[in-house]
Every structure is written in C-alpha cells, then in structure tokens.
Design a binder for these strands. Sequence first.
DNA 1: AATGGCGCCAACCGCCGTCGG
DNA 2: ACCGACGGCGGTTGGCGCCAT
Length: 266
Amino acid sequence: MGRQPCCDKLGVKKGPWTADEDNKLINFILTNGQCCWRAVPKLAGLRRCGKSCRLRWTNYLRPDLKRGLLSEAEEQLVIDLHARLGNRWSKIAARLPGRTDNEIKNHWNTHIKKKLIKMGMDPVTHEPLQKQPENQKNECHNPNNNKKTKKTAESSAGNHHCKEENESVMDNSSSPTKTENSSSVNTDESLLLDNLINTSFWIEEEALWNNNNNLGGHGYGGNFSWEENWSWLHECEDFGIHDFGFDCLDDFELNAINTTETEGKH
DNA sequence: AATGGCGCCAACCGCCGTCGG
DNA sequence: ACCGACGGCGGTTGGCGCCAT
C-alpha cells in the first residue's frame, strides 16, 4: 500500500551542510538530474533526509540563484506582490528569477516589514497604520521588543493574506504600496517596476507562473549547461555568485520584462 | 577588551494537496 | 476508493556575527 517512507529518521544528519555534502549533492544532481528526492540521499551517499536535500538545492546550490540583497526594484516588486498575494512567498519568488521563496521571506521579515512600518504602512494589510488601535500599533511599532516576543508577534501577524487575487487585485491604481513607495525608488528602477507591474501579467496569473517556473522545480535541464559550468560554479560558492559578475539584474530585468510582455500579448 | 543584545539567514518543522500503489 | 508517501509551501528556530555599551 502506498509508497515507501521518505527516509528512516534514524541516522539522518541535521544542521548546516558541509562543503563535502554540497559536493555530493551537486555531483549527484549533475549526473542524475532532479527526479526523486527520496532516493537522492541514498544514491548520493548523504546521511540527509530527501527533503533536506531538496531544500539545500533549491535555496542554496541552484546555479541560477542570485546572491546578495534585493535591489530597490526587486524590493518594490516584492512589496507590490505581497500586497496582492499575501504571504505566498513561492508565488512571489516565481516573479523574481534567481530568488528563492525562503530568501524573499527572510528579506521581508528582516527588512521590508520594518521599512513599511517606518513609512507608516501596515506590512500585513498594506494600509496606513494611523487607524490602528493604540495597543496593536504598539505591537507593530516597537522595535525594542526582545527577540523571542518579537518573533511571536511577527509570526502571528503574517498569518494571513491581506488580499487575495480574487479581491479586486487587478486594480493596480488602488495599490497603496505602489503609489506611496515609488517616490523612494530611483528613476530607472521605477521604470522597471512600472514595466513589470503594468504589463498584464495579473491577467494570466497561472500561465505566467508556469512559464517562470520553467527554471525551477523540475526543469533545470533547460538551457543551462551544468556540465560545462559546474566546477566553475562551485568555485563561486566560496565567494558568492555576485563576486563573479553574475549579479546581472539588467539581464534579469530585461528577461522578466520580455517574458511578461510576451505573455501579455496572448 | 568583554559582553550582552540584536539582526540576519540557513535550515528545520509541520501542514496540505497531489498522486502512486 | 482508499491509504500513505512525496513534494511544496509557509512559519519558526538556532546559531553566528556584528554592534553598542
């Protein structure tokens, strides 16, 4: 009945990955591709759960990942997407090639949330904070909450989506974040943002997600030449892809715009 | 120079929808 | 049709490093 268990929890290693483990995982995926995560640890000689391997790969080892802080434009896009999609980090990440849901989630919790609060916006509802009752306001505003209590407050706050796609989210002009925040973005980035937002990608949500996901999930074969680039890429791990000029936001931007425009013409 | 607090981020946990058997 | 693993997702945590005192 059913399938075999993912992994016998006994003897499964946890915690930070070593360079050796990374090597094994990458070599395995190089040779075999991404197929069955359950089988990966065994076949790759790793004492890890398949789930852990998948996470390590998608969040850290993938060659198409960008590193470093999100740019203003990316950040702005995240804010706008969050206003529409809520905490659906994977959906948001799908709009930002080279970024992972985990990365965006972390960035949201550590940077953007604070930024929005500073600007007087509720990071959950994306509405102005002024109307909040005093006690709630204090919870959100108090930056001196100690670590533990702050985390609890944050986690409960992020629990559910401020706006669902089906709640008149197509109305870009009504997005408070877009109008309020765009003044802080430099001209070029504003243009990019406008390009990204004003194209009709909201109309064919699912189709575009699928399209963007060509890179992720199952299709790493794609155009990327693993075999040719692996050794070089692994060198990059020590320095971060950025240090090798891989931080080509312009390419990504153009790509993203082209993609959205193409999709919009359907 | 020591140390305590805080920020950041990689990784884990647990839930849920999907799908194989 | 049903059971249960798989894969994906969002929430949470632990630990390291930086900074202020």
